[in-house]
């Protein structure tokens, strides 16, 4: 039996949890059982005109249930949003490497910074870290309407919420909210827009930390064959950066190794 495959999963629920944000629960034992925080899955639409799979980060995986939270941003995610309970969806087994948790031990503290739809993978991450005996602090930033905040609090994390509009919590970014609240920790983990990740990586560095950041890039295959999604990675002792695949070598990289281009 091959390590990776595409499976068919039944939709248990698919509901809007905030404006334009959907939570999709799938009965997918093979996917859920092997899911690690920071990994993603390829989800297929049933519309042949929408050729490519949609890479969606794993929000949670418990028992046989896989939870994906996605923003409706284009025709593919619009198609997903119209799916109903009981319908079957094709989905890949987990892809990418996820966050490196080997560096974290019981008694450590971890700061999780998420921006927008980037808060999703932090749920599974917070669960795994908490189970390891790590104290989790989460800063969650949104444009206007927060989501997954209650889920994060239920895990036992100390949570700071920020909104660009100031409608809820701190007015500004998740990073600023975390720094204002003195939430600095030994380990930093982040997921969100590229510009946010750049500031997270820089702030972590100023504090002598090296953030683990989950990068996003337009993907073709999602499994490393097409080399469509690349990020420039600094290699120590080497002048020329190396272009690594976000889908296969990432999506999580060290903030210190990513070269951000404006």
């Amino acid at each position: 039996m091959k390590a990776k495959k595409i499976v068919t999963a039944e939709i248990l629920s698919n509901r809007e949890i905030a404006k334009g944000i959907m939570e999709l629960k799938l009965e997918a034992p093979e996917v859920a059982s092997s899911a690690k925080p920071g990994q993603f899955v390829n989800v297929y639409t049933g519309d042949n005109a929408l050729l490519l799979p949609r890479p969606i980060s794993i929000c949670d995986a418990e028992g046989s249930v896989l939870t994906l939270v996605y923003a409706v941003v284009g025709r593919g995610t619009q198609w997903f949003s119209e799916c109903c309970t009981g319908q079957l969806l094709r989905v890949s087994t987990p892809l990418g490497n996820g966050y490196d948790l080997s560096v974290v031990k019981a008694g450590d503290t971890a700061l999780l910074i998420g921006g927008g739809i980037g808060v999703c993978p932090l749920i599974k991450l917070a669960k795994v870290l908490t189970a390891k005996g790590v104290a989790v602090r989460a800063a969650m930033g949104f444009r206007d309407e927060p989501f997954l905040v209650e889920e994060m609090k239920a895990i036992g994390a100390e949570v700071a919420v920020a909104t660009d509009s100031g409608r809820v919590g701190y007015r500004g970014t998740a990073l600023a909210a975390a720094m204002d609240a003195g939430m600095d920790c030994e380990h930093w983990f982040s997921c969100g827009p590229k510009v946010m990740l750049k500031f997270v990586a820089e702030e972590a560095k100023r504090r002598g930390r090296d953030a683990q950041i989950s990068m996003e890039e337009r993907m073709g295959c999602g499994y490393g064959a097409c080399v469509g999604c690349v990020v420039d990675i600094r290699i120590e002792g080497q002048e020329e950066p190396v272009r690594k695949k976000v889908c296969k070598d990432g999506p999580v990289f060290r903030g210190s190794e990513v070269i951000f281009h404006e």
């Binding site: 890039e217 337009r218 993907m219 073709g220 469509g228």
Partner: peptide, 23 residues
């Protein structure tokens, strides 16, 4: 070869575009 900058991939109706640039 380091190939082209990103985005390198775009979906089209029943197809796709790529500009990997032979990385």
């Amino acid at each position: 070869w380091s190939g082209n900058p990103t985005p390198r991939i775009a979906e089209t109706y029943g197809g796709m575009l790529n500009a990997v640039g032979l990385q």
